[in-house]
Design a protein around this nucleic acid. Structure first.
Lengths: 139, 139
DNA sequence: TTACTCTCTGGAGTTAACTCCAAGTCAAGC
DNA sequence: GCTTGACTTGGAGTTAACTCCAGAGAGTAA
């Protein structure tokens, strides 16, 4: 599979694919006799995996570590597992933060609704829309 | 409140606080006669709000827009609400992606457990740990 | 008065993660 | 044999979001 197809298939620019390979974010792809990259199915699975992980913000450095460990073989199984567990933990934690923000945004949107909808509400100063604290709750 | 206290309180560097103000990510803070920033409670609420939103990755540009709209007064209430709704939507979508990755990581970790735990499992090639596809499911 | 600490501003520097570019190679078509 | 188009490499440029720095001013302490 040529880089053009892989690029199309995973919606990553050719430059990005070459960059990922250069920095070790995906294992080295074999070349044809004339030096052209020829992606195997396995290469594609790596591309997909990396795209997926990068898509939710796992750091490039960490993923490079994972790929390197992978290439070192069986002796790194434990380390790789720990790496994944750590990333899982961090992802959970980020999602918890996002959940909070989600709810906070919902609260704000609701207050905007009230203000825009009802014409009898006084809209002065900072607080009514900015923070629910004026209503006496703790957010 | 001096910048040192605000910096301490919200765990943002003084440079970051000045930077945020410079680019309009928080409204301009009043100065004392001698030109020193004197943060009000309201300033602090902005700092906290922005820190919280930045913490989950809302883009600086978008938040600058929100602050600017806020300062333009009531006529922007509708626009502000729409901005928040859009961010809420995007946050939800990002969380859905993360949920998928979370599950994918769990699957991988489980497979690592199996491989490391059981000594009778053959560990050759790429697939067993990399992707569940070899087990016949669709991930 | 001198020293010290905190703060100010404008601007330069850094980091992560791409993204673009120039110069060159190769295979295919005319 | 020459052109065309996809590909190669190494390296420079870009973007977002800070982070650092130099030079200067104000307030306090000895």
């Amino acid at each position: 599979m040529l880089i053009a197809e892989v690029s199309e298939k995973f919606e990553l620019s050719q430059d990005t694919l070459r960059y990922y390979e250069r920095i070790g974010l995906i294992p080295r792809v074999n070349r044809t006799n004339s030096g052209i990259r020829d992606y195997t199915e396995e290469d594609c699975r790596w591309v997909e995996f990396i795209k997926c992980m990068r898509g939710v913000g796992l750091p490039v450095e960490t993923l490079i570590d994972y790929v390197r460990l992978f290439q070192q073989g069986e002796e790194t199984l434990e380390t790789r597992k720990e790496l994944l567990i750590e990333q899982h933990k961090q992802l959970l934690s980020r999602m918890a933060d996002m959940q909070k923000v989600l709810e906070r945004l919902e609260g704000k949107i609701e207050r905007y609704d009230q203000i825009i909808g009802g014409t009898d509400r006084q809209i002065t100063g900072f607080s009514p829309v900015f923070s629910p604290k004026v209503r006496g709750n703790k957010d």
